[in-house]
């Protein structure tokens, strides 16, 4: 095939970008693009043109687990960057975690006479704690107390999620805006908490996420306290 024929090259590069060249034909074109600047230019021009169409789709917020796993795969695998700016929220999260862990240990010791174990204390930072999450020792129920002023955005609610290691977030229900909320846990929620190392809070529509996964911004990620 004479790839240098302009019309053929135009057509093949267009079909490549549309995803219509498959199998051996696609691999042949890959090699051509490596070798021929003309082919590469044509291909990139189609990519640029068609990209306009992707801008017409409504963006979809990924679940919190995607960034969590990505961060683990990319940033924590020994090829970690030499340069990390102090603004990194994950770094702040880790620092805050140390403070909050100390706080939780205190809470756990204080609560040992009760049948409840602390799961986590959730806040946007250690000086703005919002909820205390506890579970019954048999993991049958969850008790959530508001410990700070909770002010959700208008027409929004806060939803609590268990983040099982290597799995998708599992909803633990909406968080109270005042007082205390007790709820029994379903078998799948119990499994999720048992497998989870963190809890997360996202902003959702009033009834909770319509999709079963976090759809709004994740405002809190907290480690689960393992001491019993």
């Amino acid at each position: 095939m004479n790839y240098e024929r302009p019309e053929l090259l135009e057509r093949l590069s267009g079909e490549y970008v549309l995803g219509l060249l498959r199998g051996a034909a696609r691999r042949r074109f890959d090699r051509l693009v490596d070798e021929s600047p003309t082919a590469r230019t044509r291909l990139q021009r189609w990519e640029d043109d068609w990209c306009a169409l992707s801008r017409t789709l409504d963006p979809i917020q990924p679940s919190a687990r995607v960034w969590a796993e990505l961060r683990r795969r990319v940033l924590d695998d020994g090829r970690a960057p030499a340069r990390r700016t102090p603004r990194r929220i994950w770094q702040l999260a880790a620092a805050a975690g140390v403070v909050a862990a100390a706080l939780i240990i205190g809470l756990v010791i204080r609560q040992q006479q009760h049948a409840l174990q602390s799961v986590a204390v959730l806040g946007t930072d250690p000086s703005h704690l919002l909820w205390q999450v506890e579970r019954s020792t048999d993991l049958a129920a969850l008790t959530i107390r508001t410990v700070g002023a909770v002010r959700p955005p208008p027409d929004k609610a806060y939803e609590l999620w268990a983040l099982p290691r290597g799995g998708s977030p599992v909803s633990l229900g909406l968080l109270p805006t005042a007082g205390k909320s007790e709820r029994s846990l379903s078998p799948s929620q119990r499994t999720a908490i048992a497998a989870a190392d963190r809890l997360a809070v996202s902003i959702e529509p009033p009834g909770g996420s319509p999709t079963g996964s976090p759809t709004g911004p994740v405002i809190i990620v907290a480690n689960i306290q393992t001491a019993g």
């Binding site: 963006p59 990924p62 960034w67 990319v74 340069r83």
Partner: peptide, 19 residues
């Protein structure tokens, strides 16, 4: 290999790429 830039890039374009 600036991790903060990677996170900012993710927040900017991940929703569009996911769509």
């Amino acid at each position: 290999k600036d991790a903060a830039a990677f996170e900012a890039l993710y927040q900017c374009v991940a929703p569009r790429l996911l769509a």
